[in-house]
Design a protein around this nucleic acid. Structure first.
Lengths: 195, 195
DNA sequence: GCGATTCTTGGATCGAGTCTAACAACACTT
DNA sequence: AAGTGTTGTTAGACTCGATCCAAGAATCGC
């Protein structure tokens, strides 16, 4: 986390500048109606530059959570064959830990104003699938059957995203997503982790 | 299911013709590398006509299952507030009942040859989310908490798609997806449907 | 033949996303 | 201060999925 004085031309913009411009426009005109050209125009950079900071339009919303999910997938794949629900829970709690309000939280809370219903279903589904696959893989490596592993993975992933959504809808003031997640997770533990 | 002799210009192509051309090309060159123009060219129709039969390229693979999912969502939303796991299971079994090998089954079995890994994750996630939301809604209407309902929905949806995937990978010869689904569903019933 | 209906088609248009070559701004070296 | 390497910006061309529309073609009943 050091500030390294790097060589080369300094950045004319930043992820934050672009994300702010994007979120403003999403709220004003909706997600679909906002083109990448609109975003870069408001941010005062060229359209080309957008892809120096984000891989896609939806990446503005999801990059924060995606980084955490990537970390979690690494952690999950590093778990041994004796890992169970407790280890998985610990990894997943980290995904939501200290999750600050970001473009995604804003989008979840203002999904209607942004006209994001469909987009959120699509994009959430993708992250859900990735996370579920990671958890299912841990179960499978631990000897759980293929389909049961998938069920477990989907249940854990759904718990995480449901907690995140509830937290975002309530507003950031009321508790942490981690607390919601931990509370809800008790329900999943009734599933048979072994056998 | 009557053959009505309708007025107007007869169709020059058909869903089946286009789907066959598409699947051939997907297998030969991969899904990504196959453009809609390629498909219509092989089918002998214009590019514009493609969208008279399918709403998108992925619709070639998913329209069959999507129709069944739409029916299931209708059935789920028609369930009363006293509906439980048994009613939901009955509805979901219908989704896979008599599911004949179709473009989706072909894609699931030849995902590697088609280079479909990413595409399937994305598209399956979307269907999973829709189905999970439908099931969760039944639970929620029955008084189950929000997050627990989401967990249940995700578990049921994951069971269905896991069964479908296992069935497709094994090849259509070995049993029905419904049987796989029914067998696996016992695991989900350990989740508390009430309270 | 005539209209009504249904479908096909080409072409225009849009936006996401990729790619590249030219150029601009910095740090560091000498 | 001039050169060099590095990093970032930018315009522009390009591909492709998807939407839209107007013109035309093929069938029906009359």
């Amino acid at each position: 986390m050091m500030i390294e004085p790097r060589a080369g031309r300094p950045r004319a913009s930043s992820r934050e500048t672009l994300a702010e411009a994007a979120c403003e426009l999403f709220l004003e005109n909706g997600y679909e109606a906002t083109s990448i050209a609109d975003i870069t125009q408001r941010a005062g950079v060229s359209r080309s530059s957008f892809f120096n900071y984000f891989t896609s339009k939806s990446d503005v919303l999801w990059s924060g959570l995606d980084a955490r999910i990537d970390d979690a997938l690494d952690d999950l794949s590093a778990l041994g064959t004796d890992a169970g629900g407790a280890e998985v829970r610990a990894v997943l709690e980290n995904v939501l830990k200290d999750f600050a309000p970001d473009p995604l939280a804003l989008a979840l809370r203002n999904a209607d104003a942004m006209g994001l219903e469909d987009e959120l279903v699509r994009d959430t589904g993708l992250r859900h699938a990735r996370l579920a696959a990671g958890v299912a893989d841990v179960a499978r490596r631990g000897g759980v059957g293929a389909i049961t592993s998938d069920i477990l993975g989907a249940a854990y992933a759904a718990t995480l995203f449901s907690a995140l959504r509830v937290w975002a809808e309530r507003g950031a003031g009321s508790g942490t997503p981690t607390a919601l997640f931990t509370d809800a997770l008790a329900r999943v533990h009734d599933l048979p982790w072994r056998i």
